[in-house]
Amino acid sequence: MIAVEGLRVRAGGFLLEADVVVPAGALCAVIGPSGAGKSTLLAAVAGFAPVEAGRVSAAGRDLAGLAPAERPVTLLFQENNLFPHLTVARNVGLGLRPSLSLTRPERARVDAALAETGLEGLGERLPEQLSGGQRQRAALARALLRDRPALLLDEPFAALGPGLRAEMMALVERLTAPRGIAVLMVTHHPDEARRADLAAFCALTAQGGRIDGARPAAALFADPPAGLAAYLGDAGGDLAPR
């Protein structure tokens, strides 16, 4: 479970206020205009943005004061998740321990994670030899080995085409739901937000942005608040859940 309660994060003149709870095994999409602070929310949970007020917890643990590496959290970005001069297997192996030497059983676990994400046999390649989708699969494989109860995805599939995006969404659901991992995913694609379990709208405010809790995605899109309806534009009415 990821719980964000009464969070206030300030960056320069920008203020993000957020309340979101994501139960274990659920996927919550955060959607909204750029500049409203969606990524700031993830940075605050992962320990990369200083929290001014409020409480952030994951799997029941209060995260205040924990260094990024100590948090029960994995964060993935849209790109640059892999280190370019390390092989895919070594990149994934970093999820087991932050050095580059692995034991034989650990190497077997790396291979298993690669197989589970559809990268069997690609471990010895360099990231540049993979496609964009395959690189994100490798980043997900590393997240699996890290085995943290919370997964944060910052527009992870924005650079991919629609078909591939749907495929990757399905992969994330398949990997996380059975393990009880709570997923918080930032996106600007309504189709991704729609198929999530929960969705939260990040609205622009005078001072910055605000997130007022998550609702079941179907319910949110069936009856969008004014800000979300405006953000979705015409597409909002036509693309109601089928």
């Binding site: 990024p68 590496a69 948090r71 959290v73 970005f77 932050p98 890290r146």
Partner: peptide, 8 residues
């Protein structure tokens, strides 16, 4: 950030 998260 990835390195910090991985504890490298």
């Amino acid at each position: 950030r990835i390195a910090a998260q991985l504890g490298v």
